[in-house]
Amino acid sequence: MIETSIREINEKIQQESAFIDLINLELNKVIIGQKHMLERLLIGLLADGHILLEGVPGLAKTLAIKSLAGAIDAGFSRIQFTPDLLPADLIGTLIYSQKNEEFVVRQGPIFSNFILADEINRSPAKVQSALLEAMQERQVTIGDSTFLLPEPFLVMATQNPIEQEGTYPLPEAQVDRFMLKVVISYPKKEEEKMILRQNNSLHRAPLNKVVSPESILRARAVTREVYLDEKIENYITDIVFATRYPSQYKLAKFDGMINYGASPRASINLALASKAYAFIKRRGYVIPEDIRAIAHDVLRHRIGLTYEAEAENITSEDIINEILNTIEVP
């Protein structure tokens, strides 16, 4: 007999998760494959966490985010980050009105529900900071006035992994603000063939707005209610602590390889993202599978490696894999 609360959560999930299929249908009209990326975008949407997409150019990062925003009846802004972009171009500024003889606020493109920060690492730190402050505080101050950002507010940023001229890598403290860092790989051969056909076709199915922002907010509220047992909490803290003190978890081989481990924000985001993952799977409680499914995306940008690790060709992915394979599952 499942306790009443879990049964209720399950029923709520059944009611509120219908839009997931609708969004998936719309996204599949324009995106072939990349199921992992689309699922992560939904996790970000449900868990109220910002997402950083990383992949080589041409993997439909921008298209996926644009399409997701297109399927939701909400505001969308795309900001192309360039080296000459200024914070005022992002958040807005005060402009003198000759008619009224006073300064008026001109809000920037950040005042929208969904923000696509394209190639975020092409702008210098001051612009990145302006965006990331808005991400954290969910408010923007222009002049003397503070403006709350609309709900839902979600930043989906893209960056290319290739070292190029004129790029400014995100500092560790700023990259930590992203709930998930999703690494996108090339599509499979069959998928590539489908992409080829779809792009050569004259007819393209238009995207419909199938979800309202209110549905998203309701789904978020249910996601928060998903049951997370103490055993799962212990599992999460064990994983995060293993990134900080590997030798305490039979991972002494990583001593001297990890410069800094995952922050408490990683624990919080692991819990939130696993709840969202359980919601997507129509389950009212979190199981260890959920943690393992999202652990890489939550942790990969939160583990700092030493020069020794880089010299040994050890990546944060290797460390996460080893941690997951070593820590006992409850």
Binding site: E3, Y227, K231
Partner: peptide
């Protein structure tokens, strides 16, 4: 066991 451990399930 998963239901009992993670979903507050009480078996008969």
């Amino acid at each position: 066991a998963d239901l009992v451990k993670f979903a507050k399930y009480t078996p008969i």
